[in-house]
Simulated assay, not measured.
Amino acid sequence: MHPMLRRLDDLAAHLATRPDTVALLGLGSAGTAYDRLDAHSDLDFFLVVADGAVPRYVESLDWLAAPCPVAYSFANERHGRKVLYADGIFAEYAVFTVDELARLPFTGARVVWQRPDAPAGLAECGPPPRPATPYDTVEFHLNEALTNLYVGLHRELRGERLSASRFIQSYAVDRVLALLRLTAPDVAHRRDPFDPSRRVEQAYPPEVLPLAGMVPGYRDNRAAARVTLGWLADRFPVDPVIAAAIRGLLTAPADG
């Protein structure tokens, strides 16, 4: 058994002795997709507890340390923590009541343990949230990518290189991934509905998605913008006005 799964089983055995716990759910590579577990995986889970018990299980680590001492931890939000066990297992978890869990969007959960009288369907959930924008279309993502490049290059020319890198090598690339999702929907890989960047290298070879050129690093914003613009122009009807404006910025002298 993978050490991550064993850790969850050991936690479940301890939690079963506590009267105010309801269930333990594995998520991510500790959920239904546990065949993805490898040496670089972290341990994601939800702990479901009785009403009123959430603060106690977030603030106290005694239950968490039952299988192995906790070497480092911090509360990353009011429902959960990130922790590093003494044996090197890194975990991120959140604690909810049954009612709170029912309102959460999540996918791929696996029941590691639950009380016999726990409500049915704890690991079931509705569809993940739709993208923040209602404009989930090729036209929208294409033009968002183009304007990300445009704004980013202006930031670069002003000397705001970090901001530029986010627009050019992060925001615009996110739109590229959205375009691939819409135009190549049958790619056989496990899409993450909450983080589109996960496992894209498994889905698209470099000749389809040249990430090394699109994300070359802090000092290479212009080179990155040039690659992404070329990628977009090769595959989609890029508006000539914004394309010309971007190309002009690619050759413009920086301020100062």
Results as ranks from 00 to 15, higher is better:
D239S: 11
G52V: 11
F236D: 04
G248K: 09
N148C: 14
G80R: 07
G108L: 08
L229T: 04
H79W: 07
S29N: 13
T137W: 07
F45Y: 01
K82V: 15
Q202W: 15
T97V: 14
C125A: 11
L47K: 10
H154Y: 11
Y72N: 03
D38N: 02
R175Q: 12
G126Q: 10
R110K: 10
L250W: 10
E156G: 00
W113T: 03
D38A: 01
L162P: 00
E156I: 06
A102F: 13
V112G: 01
F46I: 02
D234E: 12
I168G: 03
G121Q: 04
S29T: 14
P216L: 07
M1N: 05
A172Y: 09
G28P: 06
R198I: 08
T251Y: 13
G28F: 14
D62I: 13
V200H: 08
G230A: 01
D255E: 09
T17P: 00
A65H: 03
A94R: 02
G126D: 06
P128Y: 14
L122D: 05
R161P: 01
A184V: 05
H79T: 06
P128S: 14
E201G: 04
D42F: 11
D255L: 07
T107M: 12
R247G: 04
W63Y: 08
A71L: 14
T107C: 08
S29A: 12
D255S: 05
A245S: 12
E77C: 08
I246D: 03
D20T: 01
V138H: 00
K82P: 09
V215M: 10
S29L: 12
F167D: 04
L25R: 09
F96S: 02
S163W: 15
S60Q: 13
D10K: 04
R155K: 13
D234T: 00
L47Y: 13
P69D: 09
G108P: 00
V98D: 06
G88H: 02
A75F: 11
D192V: 10
L122Y: 07
Y72T: 11
A233N: 07
E77R: 12
G217C: 14
A244L: 11
A75M: 14
P216S: 07
L250K: 05
L232E: 07
V83H: 03
R36D: 09
W113C: 06
Y150W: 13
E59R: 06
G28V: 10
P240W: 13
L209P: 02
L43E: 01
A71V: 14
A172K: 11
P237V: 06
A233M: 11
M4D: 13
G26S: 05
A188I: 06
P129D: 03
I89F: 08
G152S: 07
D117A: 09
N148V: 12
L27H: 11
P69T: 14
P237I: 09
